Amino acid sequence: MSSKTPAKSDHYGGAELEIRNKKLILFDLDGTLTDPKEGITRSFQYALKKMGISEDRDNLLKVIGPPLWDSFEQFYAMSREESDRAVQYYREYFSEKGLYENEVIETIPQLLHDLKKNGKILAVATSKPTIYSVKILKYFQLDRYFHLIVGSELDGTRVRKDEIISHVLNVLGYCAQEAVMIGDRKHDIIGARAHGMTSIGVLFGYGSEEELRASGSDFLASSTSQLRQYLLG
């Protein structure tokens, strides 16, 4: 995971107190709640091999976070038809093994417990398919903390983060001004900004400080303890 973390949390474009008053808290999954490095890179490597491409797993950290189709097309110049095939190969491995080659980020369970205890409404908003996201959260016994878990569809629809956030807001009946989006990649921040929603970029995932700042993150948290400070004080 990203080792580039500032000495202390940084924020710009808003007061910390504003976040503590938010009722609905949306979390990304990969790189925010869990570290999926092994499972995702092994699954991606498997898919590339099936497509006739050899790649070292150390070069695949860039694919953690973005939608699968985007990564295959952007980084490996695949056509949509080719990326469709590659996604199917990816899922062959991921659905059987990669799903569980994952680990919970330290202290996240306690943070979720305390947020729920303090009356916060928690939801997961991830580009990972909902069916896999639910399985992962149940496997690690994190599903108990969330009112709603929303991801993409297996057919590649509802894959953009702004669409996923919109679905969460509609189902739970909140407006964007009552919520905050937490994630480690630019897609999380851009999705939040599309709704005028406050965002926190976390630097213990796979996005760099530069990426999160450039995408317009309102706040940065370099650790789960600093994230806790923003959310609970």
Rank of each mutant, 00 (worst) to 15 (best):
A15Q: 13
D188P: 03
L99E: 13
R80P: 09
R20Y: 02
Y12A: 13
E96M: 11
L142M: 13
R91S: 07
K161Q: 01
S222F: 03
A125K: 07
G207L: 00
S95W: 05
E81D: 15
A15V: 12
T224W: 00
G201R: 01
V104T: 14
Y90K: 06
D184Q: 04
E38I: 14
L60I: 13
V180L: 02
D188I: 00
A47C: 10
K117N: 13
L148K: 10
P67T: 08
K23F: 03
L48G: 10
R42W: 10
L26P: 01
R80I: 11
A125P: 09
Q74I: 07
H187M: 09
E96R: 14
D218V: 01
L61C: 05
K97N: 11
M181T: 04
P36M: 09
R193Q: 12
A86W: 05
D28E: 09
D184P: 02
T32M: 00
L232S: 08
T126D: 11
K120M: 06
G13E: 11
Y206F: 15
S2A: 03
S223L: 04
S215L: 04
S2F: 08
G233D: 15
F27P: 01
K49G: 05
P66D: 06
P109C: 13
A47W: 04
F72E: 02
D10K: 12
V159R: 07
Y90M: 03
V202E: 00
V168Q: 04
F44T: 06
R20E: 09
S9C: 10
S71Q: 02
Y93F: 15
S71M: 00
A15W: 09
A214G: 14
I131G: 03
H195C: 02
D155A: 07
L220N: 03
S133V: 06
K4L: 09
A176N: 02
Y139A: 13
D218K: 02
P66M: 08
L99K: 06
V104L: 10
F204Y: 15
H147K: 14
I136A: 04
F204L: 02
S225K: 07
R42A: 14
R85S: 11
S133D: 08
S3I: 08
I131N: 13
D70N: 07
A179V: 06
K116P: 01
V159G: 00
F140M: 10
K116L: 06
Q110L: 14
M197G: 00
R158H: 09
S83D: 09
D188Q: 01
R213P: 02
V202I: 08
L137I: 07
Y145R: 05
Q45H: 12
V150P: 00
R42Y: 14
R42S: 15
G196K: 01
Q45G: 10
Y93H: 15
K8L: 14
F94D: 07
Y206G: 00
E82L: 10
M78P: 04
L231V: 07
I25E: 03
